[in-house]
Design a binder for these strands. Structure first.
Lengths: 365, 365
DNA sequence: CCAGGGGCTGCAAAGGTTTGCAGGAGAAGT
DNA sequence: ACTTCTCCTGCAAACCTTTGCAGCCCCTGG
C-alpha cells in the first residue's frame, strides 16, 4: 500500500538506484533528474523505509536513551536536549526508564542493542564491569559516570560539592550532614569523596547519611536522622531530596535556614520555587544531553560539528574509536535555604538571608 | 560481526527457518531441537535483527509518542506509564517533543510514520483536519483531544472544571477568572465551555483570560491581569500555571487563599508542595498512557487484555478498526489554596483553610 | 499391509533499500 | 580523430528474517 522506491522509479522513468541516490547521495544525480524524482516522490507520498535501509546499511538512525526515572525532574531537560540534538541529525530517540533498577538497565541495553546505533546510558546503577560488557554489544556513551575506556560525560559534581561545603563552612557551619544518594551511583560517591575532603580542609565535621532513594520521600525520610546527628547544615545528593527534606523540616517546625541550612544539587526547576528558595549546585543537564549525542554520533557521521566546549574535554584514543571523557562545569547558586551558622566569624553587617561576601562570585541569579 | 540466524543454524545443524521458528513460533518446533537451538543462540549471543524482521512482517514493534513538552511535569508520568506498558508487550517507544509547536507535530508524525506501528499523539496543538490527514499515514491514538473517527483517550476535564467552579461558588466566590491554556488545545476549550456553564448555573461571573502559554511563566505573567479583573478566585488551565500564579501573587503581597483562591488542574507532583498547597483537579495521566498504548496495540496483537475500566469507554466501529473513545475520570483534590469568598453563606463554624462540607465527597487526600 | 494423518523440518521467495561495478554519452585534451 | 575523463545512470547482489508449501518420518487405525 505505501509507495516504495520502485513505484517512484516507475513513475519517473528511472531506475530504482537513481531514486535511492536522489535521497541518500543527491550530488551523484543530475539536478534535472533529481527534481523530477523528488516531485514524483512527493506526489506519491513516498518515504524511505527505514527498516530496509537499516537492513543494508547496518545503521538504524536510532539512539537509545536509558534513564533512571523519567519522573525525576532532573532528566526531562536532558532528554529534551538529546532528542532535539538527535533529531537535527535525522536520528530518533528511544527513551526507556529503569525505575532505578540495575537489572532492568542491562536488559534494556540488550533489548535495544540490535535496534539502535548506540545507547546513551544515563546515571547508571549497574557495575562498571557490567557496563563494559554491555558496551561490547552496542556503542555506549555513559552520562553521569566516569568509566575508563568508555566515552562519558559527567558534571563536575566534585567541584560542586566542594563549593557547597566551602559555602557552608564560610557561613560558620562546623557540623554538616551529607545525604547520600542511591547505591551504585557514581555521582553519589564522587560527591561524598569531594565533600569529605573539603570538609576536612575547612575544619568541619561531615556526617554521611545513606544510601537513600533519590526522591522527595527519600529526603523527607531522612529528616529525623538529620536532626539527631545535630548538624546545622545539610548537603543533599540532589534537589529532589533537598526539597523533600525542606518540606519535612517545615512540618517538624524546624526553621530553614535559621536552624538548619540546606543545599541541593542539580538546580531543577522546582527548586526556584520552594520556601525558602533552595541554594543548590546547578548542573548543565541540557548541555550534557547534547554532548552525549554528539559523542555517540561523531564516530559514524561525516559532518560533525566538533564539540569544542571551552575548558572541557579530555581525549584519549583506544582501538578504533576516540573515547573522550567530557566534564561539564557546575555552579553554586546561592538562594535562601542557607544562612549563618553558629561559628560565623565576627562580621556584624550580615543579614540572615543575604549571601555572604566571600562566595559572591558563585552567585548566578 | 554480530551473530545472525544463519550462524545459529549452522552451529546447531538445522535450517535457518527452524531457528526462526524457534523464536517466533516455538510451538512448531520439536522441544529437543528448540532447546538445542536456544542453547547455541545463547552461546553465540544471537539476537534477532529487528530491522530484517520489520522488513518482512511490516511490523516494527515500535510506537511513537509525541508530547508538547517533556519538561512539563504533566507528561513524564504519562510517558513512563506508556513506556512500561509498551515494553511489557515487547514494544519500544520513541519519544519526541514538539515544544508546543503545531508544525513540529506534523513533521514528527510523518517522520516517524515509516518507523513505527502507530503513534500516540498527546495534547496535540494542530487542527483536527491535519490530525485526520496524519492518521492516513499511520495508525494514531490521540490523547487529550476528542476527534471523531479516531481512537482517543481524554480526561474528563469538563467534569473537573465543573467541580472546581462549584467548589469555588460553594465557598462564596462570585467573581471568578479562568486562565486559559494555549491556542489549539482541546482541553483548554473544554475547560472553558464547561466552566462557563457551571459558573452561570451557580450564579457566578466567569472572566476568561488568555490564551496563555501553559507554563509557570505564563501563570506568573497573568497575575497582574488577575488582579485587575477584580476576581476573588482563579481556575487555571493547569497546575504549572497555577503554581506560577501562586508564586507571583506571593511576590505581589497578595495572600492566598485569604484574598484570592486558586485552583489548578492536573495534580502534578510539585502541587503538593506549594505554599499554600494547591487545590487542583487530579487527572489520571498514567492510566491515560496505559490506555492509549492498549488501544493502539489492540488491533495488531492477538493477546490483548481488554481494558475494561469501569464507567469508561464508548465504542464505535468504523471500516476495519474499532475507534473507541475513552474518557477517564478526574477528581477534585481540595488543599489549601482555596478558601471562603465574600459571599459565603452564613455558617459561623468555618475555619478559613478547612475544606467546606458540601464538596467533601471529592476530597482525595 | 496400506491409507491417512500429525509433527517436524527444509526450501525458496519475498520484503525495500544501498552500493560497487560497469557502461554510455558527451566534453576536453592531444 | 582518438584517447581520456567526467558525469550520470543502470544492473544486480546483498542485508536478515519470515512464511507458505512441500516433503519426510513415524504412528495409528482399519
Amino acid at each position: 500500500m505505501p509507495a516504495t522506491i520502485r513505484d517512484v522509479a516507475r513513475a519517473s522513468g528511472v531506475h530504482i538506484s537513481t531514486v535511492s541516490r536522489t535521497f541518500s547521495a543527491p550530488h551523484l544525480v543530475n539536478p534535472e533528474t533529481r527534481s523530477r524524482v523528488l516531485a514524483t516522490a512527493e506526489s506519491l507520498g513516498y518515504r524511505p523505509n527505514r527498516a530496509a535501509r537499516a537492513l543494508i546499511t547496518g545503521r538504524t538512525h536510532n539512539v537509545g536513551l536509558i534513564v533512571a526515572d523519567i519522573a525525576n525532574p532532573f532528566f526531562p531537560p536532558l532528554i529534551k536536549a538529546a532528542e532535539s540534538q538527535a533529531r537535527q541529525r535525522d536520528y530518533h530517540i528511544f527513551v526507556a526508564d529503569t525505575n532505578e533498577d540495575a537489572t532492568a538497565e542491562e536488559e534494556l541495553v540488550l533489548a535495544m542493542a540490535k535496534q539502535v546505533d548506540g545507547v546513551l546510558l544515563c546515571s547508571p546503577r549497574m557495575s562498571n564491569s557490567l557496563i563494559e560488557q554491555c558496551s561490547r554489544e552496542v556503542p555506549l556513551v555513559v552520562i553521569n559516570r566516569l568509566v575508563t575506556g568508555l566515552p562519558s560525560v559527567v558534571m563536575d559534581v566534585g567541584q560542586g560539592a566542594r563549593d557547597a561545603i566551602e559555602h557552608l563552612a564560610g557561613l560558620g557551619h562546623r557540623e554538616i550532614a551529607l545525604l547520600g544518594g542511591p547505591r551504585g551511583s557514581w555521582t553519589s560517591r564522587e560527591i561524598r569523596r569531594s565533600a569529605l575532603l573539603a570538609a576536612r580542609a575547612a575544619g568541619a565535621d561531615l556526617t554521611v547519611l545513606g544510601p537513600n532513594p533519590p526522591t522527595e520521600d527519600g529526603g523527607a525520610a531522612a529528616a529525623d536522622q538529620v536532626r539527631r546527628v545535630g548538624c546545622t547544615a545539610v548537603l543533599a545528593y540532589n534537589d529532589l531530596m533537598a526539597i523533600g527534606l525542606l518540606d519535612e523540616l517545615d512540618s517538624l517546625g524546624v526553621r530553614v535556614p535559621e536552624e538548619i541550612s540546606v543545599v541541593g544539587i542539580d538546580d531543577i526547576a522546582p527548586s526556584r520555587r520552594t520556601r525558602p528558595k533552595l541554594t543548590t549546585v546547578a548542573t548543565p543537564t541540557a548541555a550534557a544531553g547534547r554532548a552525549a549525542v554528539d559523542m555517540l554520533l561523531q564516530h559514524d557521521n561525516a559532518p560533525v560539528a566538533r564539540t569544542a566546549r571551552p575548558g572541557v574535554g579530555v581525549g584519549a584514543v583506544d582501538g578504533r574509536r576516540t573515547t573522550a571523557q567530557v566534564t561539564l562545569q557546575t555552579e553554586l547558586v546561592i538562594r535562601d535555604s542557607t544562612g549563618p551558622g553558629p561559628h560565623l566569624p565576627a562580621d556584624p553587617g550580615y543579614a540572615a538571608t543575604a549571601a555572604p561576601g566571600p562566595v559572591a562570585s558563585y552567585v548566578k541569579e
